[in-house]
């Protein structure tokens, strides 16, 4: 589905790292500031490739977005005690690997509410602890693990670049309709993605 997202009924196809595609509503997708910057006004020609994240992770992220479509606008982090039963279940049923993948994906997609809740949840594990106590609740990666992670990050940065190129390509196609705004939008997109790319490569 490839039309501009002007109403919540619009569905978009999302492509995962496995090459699988699935539907997400425009309303859910609009919670992603990355999506808003790249595709909201110009639409997408074909599936949107978020191919640095797997299907399970993306589905989990957009499950959250679909659920919070009707919630009031995000206005800063909520205390975990104020989370709804649904939110608590959502977080509690994830294993650690999925939780980390969801944070990283949510962070890339710039979904403020989900990122904030996840990060606050991790901060709670560390809160009030000294170094020795922190070491008990966190695992420090080995040099090999860090190296492997570095490679993954580089791969993700390349994927992010691909997404940007796709957005730019789509923008060029719609250029005749809205020439100036689209060009500005693409430039904004490129700038944003360059920043993301830089932030990944700097790790």
């Amino acid at each position: 589905m490839t039309s501009p997202a002007s109403s919540s009924e619009v569905k978009y196809l999302i492509e995962s790292s496995e090459g699988n595609t699935f539907d997400v509503s425009g309303a859910a997708l609009r919670q992603s500031n990355t999506f808003n910057a790249m595709f909201l006004n110009i639409g997408a020609d074909g599936p949107i490739p978020f191919t640095d994240y797997n299907e399970a992770t993306l589905k989990k992220v957009f499950e959250y977005c679909e659920h919070s479509v009707n919630e009031e606008n995000y206005s800063g982090p909520k205390h975990q005690d104020d989370l709804s039963k649904w939110d608590l279940n959502f977080f509690n049923e994830m294993d650690q690997k999925m939780f980390i993948d969801v944070i990283n994906a949510s962070n890339f997609l710039d979904i403020e509410r989900l990122t904030s809740y996840c990060c606050e949840r991790i901060a709670r594990m560390l809160r009030g602890k000294n170094t020795q106590e922190m070491i008990k609740v966190i695992t420090l990666p080995t040099a090999e693990e860090l190296e492997a992670k570095q490679k993954v990050e580089e791969k993700k940065a390349a994927a992010a670049k691909k997404v940007a190129e796709k957005a730019a390509e789509t923008a060029e196609k719609t250029e005749t309709l809205e020439e100036l705004p689209v060009q500005q939008l693409v430039q904004t997109t490129r700038n944003k993605l360059t920043r993301k790319y830089l932030s990944f490569s700097n790790e």
């Binding site: 606050e120 901060a123 560390l126």
Partner: peptide, 28 residues
């Protein structure tokens, strides 16, 4: 089990650290 916090991206870790006070940040 122990949480592999440093597998988070730097950007995500920055978000996490925003919730910690100066002494907790010193400790981490």
């Amino acid at each position: 089990q122990p949480f592999t916090i440093f597998f988070l991206s730097s950007v995500a870790l920055r978000h996490v650290f925003q919730f910690l006070n100066p002494i907790e940040l010193f400790e981490i």
